[in-house]
Design a binder for these strands. Structure first.
Lengths: 358, 358
DNA sequence: AATGACGGATAAATCGATTTACAGAGTGAG
DNA sequence: CTCACTCTGTAAATCGATTTATCCGTCATT
């Protein structure tokens, strides 16, 4: 296939020649630095337009210690939560005139550390890390080791070195406890599809603490695991076999699933057993999904303010990068909102024939 | 806060000095170019390890016309489909020794064109574009204008300039037609939450063509729109008001929703009207979601081979970049798989009292 | 012994911007 | 009239790698 040779891109020198000034002057004009005669500035702008000049971000960064790039490392890109987080970060970074480089650690701590090191190779001005585990994970360790500028997001609590931005998992989960206990539930299963995540652990703690404070006799079962999907599915199955099989208590009347994956998994198992929600058992999930409002019953869930979190995280990072904030690390807790729908009902006078549902 | 000053990163010259060779030699060794004495290569490797040297990808690219970077532009990052696509691309790119820069056009054609131009600024070796509209959209136009190396993915059909990789939307939709007609349905609503997307239009065509070929008297209603969520919701509502209100036919007995958003929207409206799925009306959706297997009824949907698509797209792009393929553009159609679940039932002897469900 | 070929290594040019150091021009004060 | 100083603008150094042009031995060929 005949391909006419590509015309070489215009460089800053081409612009300089065309405008009849030096490259240094062009550089100044382009970055809005002072001390350039208005007339020359105009000539430069005209030349830029005439040649269709666009700056090479790569060459531009080379000379400086840090580049106008912000790195982001998140555990996955398949979930709506991190997808939205990245979209929000991207938007905010762009508005501030930074480029973004995104990478997903795919829930692997080793990969996470590697990606952080790679961000350092790019000499990013700063990094947003949503760790696989927490602020004690390998990614954060690498940040410290390389003494990078960064902000930690989502699966973290306070840190002694970096600013953190998270949803208020603790308080939101405490509210779920209020909600479920208020409905009369006294035996609840807490299920998490991962235990490595700090967020999940915090949700667990938030629920437990509030529930026990409010109703010391409350019965809380917890099921956490990092195993494969099938193993987890089996664990839930087994749990219900035992819990609903024993005659002593009759098993939990409600489930609080600690992540969207967990909600999915629990829902699937409840369906398999023919347990009706909320008549036979109530369900509240952490992390809202668009689908949750269309199912029957629709799912009561805690929605995280992901857009705000992205905004806050980037603002905090920029403040560090631009040296506006050199003080102690700050911790930002964003309030969540529980969307009450149909999947949770009263727990006291619950129908007891559900055991036959198998 | 006292911060001990950061030690300067080792450069290739530091390595050269430490190994007692020249920078050029180090460069050769590091890129595995031939003609270096084994002893010197060893010295270099030792020096790299001793100094903890890591190459600066930015400086590395500067000298070359193109850089070991691959750009990706997708319509959004919130959806599981593009999330998974990006994850797949990232993985494949990395295996081939390329960096990836991802950006989301947020369903805006203007932004899309801008992002493509920006990829060109980075002098990427190649670009993967999942366009908002199709191969005739503004992003693709920009690719052509800048004469970039690229591969088009997902919302495209054949192109005269670029290789394309898509799910076989046409055939998969035709199979849905076979499936629904085979169940006895003779009046089907096709609903799409966007009409700008080539993929949605192809799905529509695939269904229609097969359905009409097989059963000329089939009654197909189509509802496509690019409006806001609320406007669309209203349109669907109105459609059912009319379709189920008239006494002539009794309205559609099945819905084929052309995207996951569409499935969500239809499901929500069916629920609102109290129409039972599949007893009152059947539903098949294009694009599978994890949640669809856990709802009751579970949703029959067409699953797209997103991992394979990512793999193929990147392979095609690399073949172009590395000059292994200089022939005519190739079109890659990946087969989809319909996951038959519970949301579609027989259409002939459907209960007719559903109109009371309002 | 002279010429060529070749393996192996290097000094220096290069990529495209930024930054530094410095040079003229004009201005105002002493 | 000169010194000090501000304004503008430029040449050149710089960033960290890659590539090019060369160079130096060594060995084979005539």
């Amino acid at each position: 296939m005949p391909r006419e040779e590509k015309p070489r891109r215009a460089t800053i020198h081409d612009v300089a020649r065309h405008a009849g000034v030096s490259a240094a002057t062009v550089s100044k004009v382009l970055r809005g630095v002072s001390s350039v005669k208005a007339e020359n500035a105009d000539r430069v702008h005209a030349a830029v337009k005439a040649l269709g000049y666009r700056m090479d971000p790569l060459a531009s960064g080379l000379r400086n210690e840090y580049r106008r790039i912000i790195g982001a490392v998140v555990p996955d890109l398949e979930s709506a939560f991190f997808g939205a987080l990245v979209a929000g970060l991207e938007d905010a970074a762009e508005r501030a005139g930074y480029h973004m480089i995104v990478s997903s650690s795919r829930e692997s701590e080793e990969r996470e550390a590697d990606l952080v090191a790679r961000m350092n190779d790019w000499r990013v001005a700063g990094t947003i890390l949503a760790p696989v585990r927490s602020e004690r994970g390998r990614g954060a360790a690498m940040l410290r080791e390389l003494d990078m500028t960064a902000v930690l997001v989502d699966r973290v609590s306070a840190d002694d070195r970096y600013d953190t931005v998270t949803a208020d998992n603790f308080e939101a989960s405490a509210e779920v406890a209020d909600f479920l206990l208020g409905l009369g539930h006294r035996h609840v299963l807490l299920h998490g599809a991962t235990q490595i995540s700090k967020a999940v652990r915090t949700r667990l703690a938030g629920f437990s603490k509030r529930a026990k404070a409010r109703e010391p006799g409350v019965h809380i079962d917890t099921l956490l695991s990092d195993d494969d999907l099938e193993v987890q599915r089996e664990a839930v199955r087994e749990y219900f076999d035992v819990a609903l099989g024993e005659n002593t208590q009759g098993g939990p009347t409600a489930v609080f699933s600690l992540s969207q994956h967990s909600t999915l998994l629990v829902l699937s198992e409840l369906g398999r057993r023919g347990l009706r929600v909320p008549q036979d058992i109530s369900l509240v999930g952490f992390d809202d999904g668009e689908w949750m409002q269309t199912t029957w019953p629709s799912i009561t869930a805690v929605a995280q303010p992901v857009a705000v979190m992205a905004e806050r995280a980037l603002a905090a990072l920029l403040a560090r990068i631009e040296g506006e904030n050199t003080g102690f690390p700050v911790q930002c807790l964003e309030p969540c909102k529980m969307l009450v729908r149909q999947s949770a009902g009263p727990g006291e006078e619950m129908s007891r024939q559900r055991r036959g549902g198998r």
